Simulated scan of single mutants.
Amino acid sequence: MGDDLIYAIVQNESIYVINLGKHNDIFKPGELIEACENEWPGMHFDLESDDNNSSISMDNDFFRQNACNPQLGFTLLKPAAFTDKTSGKVKYISNHQNTAMISYESQEGTWNLPLKCVMAFDHEEKLIYKFIKDIYFHYGTFPDSLELDLKNRKYIFKVPTIRGYGDYIITKRDAHRYLTASFPCDEAEINWQL
């Protein structure tokens, strides 16, 4: 009691119980879809296979982290997916995607941005601050410039040395495969249409 939830699909006058689970199971949408497909194949979802291994789905920890961020009003960023045990292929619901828009008020008016775009900026800002703290910890000073290596997906920081102006330590950091505004990946393609 209290933490128990019934996950089900209600359709017309029928109810299809997928799982009796806990609240945290909501952060594992792929597993719920897989359970439903195992019981009623092809009945509730139109599934597609990720034949190109393009990482169209998100991992559970990333889903949970952003679903719990009230600033984002998070619904879904990428389709919920699972690995089919029979074929070994990643399968996902073709029409299970984010459509949320986030509104920002400014002096010029209101900006309506797709959730993917907001998350890309939010994630990259946190990532860069993390890198700056790490650089300060290792070198005892903050970097004074940042460049992007778009081809190799790297951030290039210049860290001044005690020798003075123009003498730098160059340090590089990898851009993660999660969404970033500077290094968009396949998952980060943004649809600007309202």
Rank of each mutant, 00 (worst) to 15 (best):
M1C: 01
M1F: 04
G2L: 10
D4S: 11
L5G: 00
L5E: 06
L5R: 15
I9M: 11
V10W: 03
V10Q: 10
N12C: 03
E13Y: 08
I15H: 01
I15W: 00
Y16L: 09
V17L: 09
N19T: 06
H23C: 06
I26A: 14
K28D: 02
L32Y: 03
I33W: 04
E34F: 10
A35Y: 06
C36P: 01
E37A: 04
N38T: 02
E39F: 01
W40D: 09
W40H: 09
P41H: 04
P41K: 05
G42I: 04
G42A: 11
G42H: 08
M43Q: 15
H44P: 06
H44F: 15
D46A: 11
L47R: 05
E48N: 04
N53D: 15
S54I: 10
S55I: 01
F63Y: 15
R64L: 11
R64M: 15
R64W: 03
A67K: 08
N69W: 07
Q71W: 00
L72F: 13
G73E: 06
G73F: 03
G73M: 03
F74A: 06
L76G: 00
K78Q: 09
K78H: 06
K78L: 04
A81E: 03
T83Q: 15
T83N: 12
D84R: 10
S87W: 10
V90G: 03
K91F: 01
Y92W: 08
Y92F: 15
Y92E: 02
I93L: 13
I93N: 08
N95W: 07
N95V: 01
H96L: 11
N98L: 07
T99E: 09
M101Y: 06
M101S: 08
I102N: 13
S106V: 10
E108S: 14
E108P: 00
E108D: 14
G109A: 11
W111S: 12
N112L: 13
L113S: 04
L115I: 14
L115F: 01
C117Q: 11
V118L: 06
M119S: 00
M119K: 07
A120W: 01
F121D: 03
D122M: 13
D122H: 13
H123K: 03
E125C: 08
K126Y: 03
L127G: 00
L127Q: 14
K130P: 02
F131R: 02
I132G: 04
D134Y: 02
I135R: 04
F137K: 15
Y139D: 06
G140L: 06
T141W: 02
T141R: 14
T141N: 10
P143I: 12
P143W: 07
D144R: 05
D144L: 06
D144T: 14
S145D: 15
L146G: 02
E147H: 12
L150T: 14
K151Y: 12
K151T: 14
N152D: 14
N152I: 00
I156Y: 05
F157V: 01
K158G: 00
I162Y: 07
R163V: 05
Y165D: 13
G166C: 05
I169D: 08
I170G: 00
T171E: 11
K172A: 08
A175H: 04
A175V: 03
R177A: 05
R177M: 09
R177W: 08
Y178R: 11
T180P: 01
T180F: 02
T180L: 03
A181K: 12
S182F: 08
P184A: 05
P184C: 05
C185M: 02
D186F: 09
E189N: 08
I190C: 15
N191G: 13
Q193I: 14
L194E: 14
L194T: 06
